[in-house]
Design a protein around this nucleic acid. Structure first.
Lengths: 343, 343
DNA sequence: ATGAAAGCGCTAACAG
DNA sequence: CTGTTAGCGCTTTCAT
């Protein structure tokens, strides 16, 4: 990248002082400049193909117009829609997005946060469960504008956008109860993830509410939200409770694990057992059978997270609003993996 | 973000001049400073929790340690692994990654590129087919370090990392020929994507090579690399060539479209027709039947792209090497969607 | 309405 | 080995 065109060059070309050129170029301060000079400066800028130097500006204004987003893993299909949603909001407002992966590694998280803060990001979006409350509090105390995605700050120190897991599970349970199921098992995600915990709790609560058995032993925890652990947990659950007629999985990957386990054991879905997922991952409608699952609006979550952060960024620090938690409404996608219980 | 600790503060605390502190903090120039001062400065920095201001440094050094990556759509399962691969290489080298989506929109691409360049990114990784050759040439002429991912510059003005589509399709065709297929159809991707073109060409070439029918009419082009167009194209192909016993799809989504079309028409896979995909998207091994497909190392592609860019960034501009094209070797994942032809 | 001057935080000559 | 000086490109007082 060679000889860059600076504001000086534009000013000289337009026959004005650099500061005047600056004012003319900035819509905010343009009103203070005469029509004539404005057009002269704009012309000159155009002619020279002037591109402002974001760093120099940032150094002066203390705003970089960049935002950092931390996700556990972009390859997990959950996160791309969030990134997308965030990105769409932010770029519309003129911001760029720095994306970092943590691999669920506490240390990497720290490194990335340090790097992002060194880059002087104007704000941060954390979609990682590892952002423990200490860390979040630390950030908010340093007045870093911060929004949490898909997880809560236990002590509500930062705004958070989450899916309504209670409602989602409730929808599933009502659907299964309506089909006639009375003994339902739950293959839950790990307890160290808030979504894992929340859905397991919601399972027990709504089980009682819709009139089906609600016993702790009907919940089997998988070691992580992936296929193989789902398979393992499914087998364990069936060994303990052979009588169940439906399995509510904590997410779609766990449901896929159940598909695999049931397939191996020669049990038909939904003939022998109904199975439900959570998240409505891409292409689960193309499985055999197409998966009944809860559709969480992750893209919307990203979008709302983006706008929430933008508000934070534009609000003068005096009038800080209390951090709010926004719960997005999920939808049940009924497909062919659920049916009436075997008789 | 309040009262920041500057290098001045550290220098004062350590009782040295700012420039000495700078030298002590920078591993590159540290050798020129006495052991004693180094440790005094390091101590002071530690004590004050000094964090260098990347902008100020960048303004001075003309390097921001950020790289821009442009993808058509992070939600397309192809791209997250690439992003991941790039990110892993770059963050290891101390760079941050700015990610932008184009939605296959020429105008958005321009906007994003302008924003990235304004942010003074040190280099660019383009994984978007829309980056036409004019644009690439423009960038390289402006000496922007640039690497292309999953696409070629027709006139080889920039280094490119791509999958070897000829080889991938060849592997598929050999597999099908070995199973006994003699009439094979191809549901191709759109001609405006280089991968669409390359695979269709490779299909015809290797068909001839492995001794199966190689006729233009055995290729049906889908309007885009998605499920529904695959479905449509599959039906069209079967209408024209009811005799074919296998379908080679241009990518996995097109293959899923074929699954759907065949499912609707009551044809069994692979009993009536074998189907193959391309890319080995996540979870296609869990479809019914599990999809035989070509596994392209997208993560590796990202990684190689990252290291290639790093080389570009570290090479003094004098000794520019000619841009090279690296072709990554794909692998055939044989699963249950292919079998011997119906008799 | 415009110009002059200062300075954001840092690094890189150049002296010593 | 360390201090001095200058300046990256921009915005923002403060004058005029």
């Amino acid at each position: 990248m060679n000889d860059r065109v600076t504001l000086q060059d534009v000013a000289r070309e337009a026959g004005v002082h650099a500061s005047t050129a600056s004012r003319a170029l900035n819509p905010q301060t343009r009103n203070v400049v005469s029509e004539a000079t404005i057009s002269r400066v704009l012309d000159a800028a155009e002619r020279l193909a002037y591109r402002p130097h974001a760093l120099a500006r940032g150094l002066r204004t203390n705003r970089t117009m960049t935002v950092g987003m931390v996700v556990p893993d972009v390859e997990n299909p959950l996160f791309p829609p969030m990134v997308r949603g965030v990105e769409s909001e932010l770029t519309a407002a003129g911001y760029s997005l720095l994306v970092a992966n943590t691999d669920n590694d506490q240390e990497r998280l720290q490194t990335h946060l340090a790097a992002l803060l060194a880059q002087q990001v104007d704000g941060l979006i954390l979609a990682t469960a590892l952002a423990n409350d200490d860390l979040v509090r630390n950030l908010t105390e340093r007045d870093v504008p911060l929004v949490l995605l898909n997880r809560l700050a236990e002590d509500a120190t930062a705004p958070a956008i989450v899916g309504d897991d209670r409602l989602g599970i409730r929808l599933v349970m009502e659907h299964l109860a309506a089909l006639g199921h009375r003994r339902i098992g739950h293959v839950a995600g790990p307890a160290w993830l808030s979504t894992g915990r929340a859905r397991a709790e919601a399972f027990l609560n709504s089980a009682a509410a819709v009139g089906v058995a609600a016993e702790e032993s009907l919940v089997e925890r998988a070691s992580s939200f992936r296929v193989q652990p789902g398979d393992t947990a499914c087998r364990a659950l069936l060994a303990r409770h052979p009588e169940i007629t439906a399995i509510v999985a904590g997410n779609d990957l766990l449901a896929l694990g159940c598909y695999r386990a049931l397939g191996m054991e020669g049990r038909a879905i939904p003939g022998d057992l109904s199975v439900t997922g959570y998240n409505d991952m891409p292409y689960v409608d193309l499985l055999a059978p197409p998966l009944t699952t809860v559709c969480v609006p992750y893209r919307e979550m990203g979008r709302v997270g983006g706008t929430t952060l933008l508000e934070l960024l534009n609000r003068p620090p005096e009038q800080a609003a209390p951090p709010t938690t926004i719960r997005l409404t999920p939808k049940l996608s009924v497909r062919a993996s659920t049916g009436p219980p075997r008789s």
